[in-house]
Every structure is written in structure tokens, then in C-alpha cells.
């Protein structure tokens, strides 16, 4: 089991470094132009935020429609920390996440009583409250006009280098988010979280502290969404409250459902696909949203569980098959809480 874990860790780390070097180099030498580079960076932000929602909705089974609200809190906190208090960027992003996490705890409590559609509406209300709050906290947030002039990740003389640095920041956060979520899901608390999704009463009768894990999951999710929001604010360079309204929240839900509730790789693939498809559809102008809506309907008819269901694609699993490293023959009793096969 331990050997497997180390093998997995090395493969994941290696793969993410290789992918990073390739993508960054291609951007630097101009094979990936600035426009596509921006889209890749935006995909990375969506990966962070969509994974945060997948933790609540996909793994814990609580339908939440206010994820952009957490993003908004993180984005504004980060921007204000940088602009008004001159906090270093990394620290500011983490503070943004922490403040969003506090909101996560607050919104986590209703989830102990509300379920399904009721919770969905409550979280929807939360998202709206945040939006209105941001409009009315004028002196701090710039009100409806928004915050302008958020400094970029770097300001070298070289635009291409700036873009690559921007991409690197987002890429690192996306990888860290993936690692956090996949480690969590394969750990003992992760099992507890999944069992809540499967059957709350049964989970409670197994001795799982449902209240604790629900709040835990909401808090971690809000933290990650806040971090995603912080990155988004710096990426955009300006913020205004409508960037985090109902539609952006829905977009995140769409990504998670498209990728597959409870699939990390599904969310990653769907985040990238969503970003690009939205851009490609721009040529259809007003028809864009119609076509996008139709595409969603078709996907839901033919892949009701999303592109990957709750399955995962894995490089280490693939490599193992490739080299017939079948040193993982039976899941025996001693492997409890260990990594699942094919992970």
C-alpha cells in the first residue's frame, strides 16, 4: 500500500512537472499564442473552483448553488489585501481563502438541517447576499463600479514572460487543489464524506459525525473557492459584483455535472473543455448560449452521469497496466482506507 502511494505521488508529481514545462515552454516560444495562453490560465482557475464545488456536491452530496459567492469573498479580500494593505500576493490569496472559509463555516450550519433542493435555494440566497453586500460596501469594494487596478502577478517588461508567470501561478494552485482533494477522498475522512453522500442515516449509524464532516467539507470547499477567486481577481485585474452572480455559480455547477459528480479528472477535463467551448462558440454571437444549452441537454441525455461518472482516469494506473506492474492483486483486508485501485 505504501509503495503504491509513493509510486502514485512520484507519477503525479512527475507528470505535473512535465505538463507544466511543456505548456510553459510552448507559451514562451509562441506556439501557444497569448489568447490560448489566457484561456489555459482561465481553465486552471475553473479547475480550482469547480473542484471545490465537486467536494461539496459530488463527494459530500450537498447541492450548493452559491459557489461564486465564496469566490467573490476570496477575490475581494485578496484584492483589498494587496491594494490597501500591500500584503504579498501569495499571502493575500491565502487570506482570501481563509476569509471565504469563515463564510463556509457559517453557510455550513444550515446544511445540517437543510437537504437537497432546500439547501440549493439557501446557498443560492447566500450567493445573492454576497453580491448585494459587495455592491453596498462601496468604500471597501468600490460598489457597483468595482475595484480597478489590481496589480498583476508580475510586471516585467516582457509581456510573454508575464503571461507565463500568470499561467504558472494558476497552474501550481490547480495542481495543489487536485492533490488536496484526491488525498482527502482516499483518506479515512474522505470515506466518511462519501458515505454521507451515499446514505446519511446509515453513515450516522456507522458512528460518523455527520455534522462535523459536512461543515468540514463546506469550509474546505469555501477556502478553495476563495483561493480560486483570489487568483481570478488578479488574473482579471479588476473586480465587480456581477462577475460573481447567479450565472457564474451555475457555470461552476455545469462544469461539475458535465465532468461527473465525484470525479476529479472529470472536473479537470470539463473545466478546460468548458472554457474553450465558450470561446469557440463566440463566432455564433447571439446563438452562443442556445448552442451551449443544447449541448448541455444532449450531454445529459447521453451521459447522465457526466463525462466520467464518478470514475477517475489515472496516469499511474495506466503506467501500471502498461508495464504489467500487477503488484496490487487483491484488495485485502489490510488495505483498508488505502488508495483505490486504478487511482
Amino acid at each position: 500500500m505504501k509503495k503504491n502511494r509513493i509510486f502514485n505521488a512520484v507519477v503525479i508529481l512527475g507528470a505535473s512537472v512535465v505538463v507544466f514545462v511543456i505548456l510553459a515552454a510552448l507559451q514562451y516560444i509562441g506556439v501557444i499564442d497569448e489568447y490560448n495562453g489566457q484561456l489555459l490560465t482561465l481553465s486552471g482557475i475553473y479547475i480550482v473552483v469547480a473542484l471545490s464545488l465537486n467536494l461539496i456536491t459530488g463527494f459530500t452530496g450537498q447541492l450548493a448553488l452559491g459557489q461564486a459567492g465564496f469566490m467573490s469573498v476570496g477575490a475581494y479580500t485578496t484584492a483589498i489585501a494587496i491594494m490597501k494593505f500591500h500584503v504579498p500576493m501569495l499571502l493575500a490569496i491565502l487570506i482570501g481563502g481563509l476569509v471565504a472559509a469563515v463564510f463556509g463555516i457559517i453557510i455550513g450550519f444550515p446544511t445540517l438541517r437543510l437537504r437537497g433542493d432546500y439547501l440549493a435555494i439557501a446557498t443560492l440566497g447566500f450567493g445573492e447576499i454576497i453580491r448585494v453586500l459587495m455592491i453596498n460596501l462601496g468604500s471597501l469594494t468600490g460598489g457597483a463600479a468595482g475595484l480597478k487596478g489590481i496589480p498583476a502577478f508580475s510586471e516585467t517588461e516582457n509581456f510573454v514572460l508575464d503571461a507565463v508567470i500568470k499561467f504558472s501561478w494558476v497552474y501550481v494552485f490547480a495542481v495543489i487543489t487536485i492533490v488536496i482533494i484526491s488525498n482527502l477522498i482516499n483518506s479515512s475522512p474522505g470515506r466518511a464524506i462519501i458515505s454521507i453522500r451515499e446514505d446519511e442515516i446509515a453513515a450516522n449509524s456507522m458512528g460518523i459525525n455527520i455534522a462535523y464532516y459536512k461543515i468540514f467539507s463546506f469550509t474546505l470547499s469555501a477556502f478553495l473557492a476563495g483561493v480560486g477567486g483570489g487568483l481570478y481577481g488578479i488574473y482579471m485585474g479588476y473586480l465587480n459584483p456581477t462577475m460573481f452572480g447567479f450565472m457564474p455559480s451555475m457555470n461552476i455547477v455545469v462544469i461539475v455535472v458535465l465532468g461527473g459528480l465525484g470525479s476529479i479528472t472529470g472536473t479537470v477535463v470539463a473545466s478546460v473543455a468548458f472554457t474553450y467551448i465558450q470561446e469557440w462558440l463566440r463566432v455564433f454571437k447571439d446563438l452562443r448560449l442556445v448552442i451551449f444549452g443544447l449541448a448541455l441537454i444532449l450531454v445529459m441525455i447521453f451521459w447522465p452521469k457526466g463525462l466520467l461518472g464518478n470514475k477517475e482516469l489515472s496516469i499511474s494506473g495506466f503506467l501500471r497496466k502498461l508495464f504489467k506492474r500487477e503488484n496490487n492483486p487483491e484488495r485485502t483486508v489490510s488495505q483498508q482506507n488505502g488508495s483505490r485501485e486504478g487511482k
Binding site: 470515506r191 451515499e198 446509515a202 453513515a203 456507522m206
Partner: peptide, 19 residues
């Protein structure tokens, strides 16, 4: 019954031993 339908038999038993 309320078993965890998407988990394997072994994983269900592991949940039973959670505490």
C-alpha cells in the same frame, strides 16, 4: 438496509469498522 450502494462490499464493511 441502507447499504452504501456505490461502494464495494468490502468498503461497506470498512465503513462499519469506521470507529
Amino acid at each position: 438496509r441502507r447499504i452504501f450502494a456505490n461502494m464495494t462490499v468490502m468498503e461497506n464493511l470498512e465503513m462499519g469498522a469506521y470507529i
